[in-house]
Design a binder for these strands. Sequence first.
DNA 1: CCTTCAGGTTAACGACCGCTAACCTCGCTG
DNA 2: CAGCGAGGTTAGCGGTCGTTAACCTGAAGG
Lengths: 201, 201
Amino acid sequence: MVTRTDAPTRREQILKEAARLFAERGFHGVGVDEIGAAVGISGPGLYRHFPGKDAMLAELLVGISGQLLTGAKRRLAEADGQSGASAVLDSLIEGHIDFALDDRPLITLHDRELDRLRDSDRKLVRQLQRQYVELWVEVVREVYPGLSEPSARSAVHSVFGLLNSTPHLGRAGTLPGRGATAALLHRMARGAFEAAGGAEG
Amino acid sequence: MVTRTDAPTRREQILKEAARLFAERGFHGVGVDEIGAAVGISGPGLYRHFPGKDAMLAELLVGISGQLLTGAKRRLAEADGQSGASAVLDSLIEGHIDFALDDRPLITLHDRELDRLRDSDRKLVRQLQRQYVELWVEVVREVYPGLSEPSARSAVHSVFGLLNSTPHLGRAGTLPGRGATAALLHRMARGAFEAAGGAEG
DNA sequence: CCTTCAGGTTAACGACCGCTAACCTCGCTG
DNA sequence: CAGCGAGGTTAGCGGTCGTTAACCTGAAGG
């Protein structure tokens, strides 16, 4: 985990605010003037940093998918051989939870605005997502050999749905602290997989 | 379950197609002309049936929330006393799965376009949703008394995320049949609650 | 047979939105 | 200090979209 100390660039400010606004009101529901206003410049000034509104969404979605996949690969490599598949699965779950808790707007966009992308960008994002899912599927099937591949894939998608539910958990600080929430989500994810792998195949 | 035999009214056709289109491309991403075209009339003809585009979304969202709540109340009443809380929870899960599998576009809209509503409509939908959640929370806490109320509420939201993941499960018929999918989701939901209720409170 | 009305049609208006054009103003740097 | 590029500004164009207006038509009812 690299900790940044320098100030965020204007580009990064824009992406962050755009993500928040897109998540709140949808891609088509946000105007460029609002995005500009959110970072203290006005509308057309954004075009000094991005070729268009679509490009902001594209960069956000490609970035998310890439980060998730990269992180998962790293966790897989770090633990390879020395620890069991079950520990790897725990690590994957932990990584996804961190992401879901720290970047709620992005996790919201991730499966909501994909269809607003240009064909090439959408294909790229889909490919990254697919790799991420397949990586999970392999680990899950190693831990629960009774699961057929289609069932494992369905189970993985469902657990993503469970983990990505964080935006619905109390907008304010009504939820019992980050650590407790992460632990609860982790337990539930493992429980869901356990139940999926217990019976049928 | 009342089975309808008569043909759907024009109003119902419109709502169904609007739901599909809104789910596919977002509320702002669909024009009234497209909705009209989907039912064989053109754009402004819709205004003979609805006062505006917003009204279609409002009716859809209020309808969804109402149906979910009504169904849950019915299931709770049917089983009251004679069967245990665990059976009631199974019944709730079954009802939610039926809805998620049969009305994927609606389940997608349900937590995606809520902010596009007029204040009064949004309040109404939120109230219905809250009642639905609270109903689940009570049943869940009866089955797993170790769970604190905040934890139970988080767990319920997360299980909704799990069950509502159906739109992501193979757009085509690649998933292993409706029955098997429903069974898998049901097992995972129970497993998730079990794991949530096992430890901490 | 005339009237009425539900349920369409097309034309067009007004607002909004993404984007471009043209211009300005600094802080560097040779 | 001249020049220049990075990063802003405002004005405005072109297209789209929700909505309204005005008109049409066919079936039902007295």
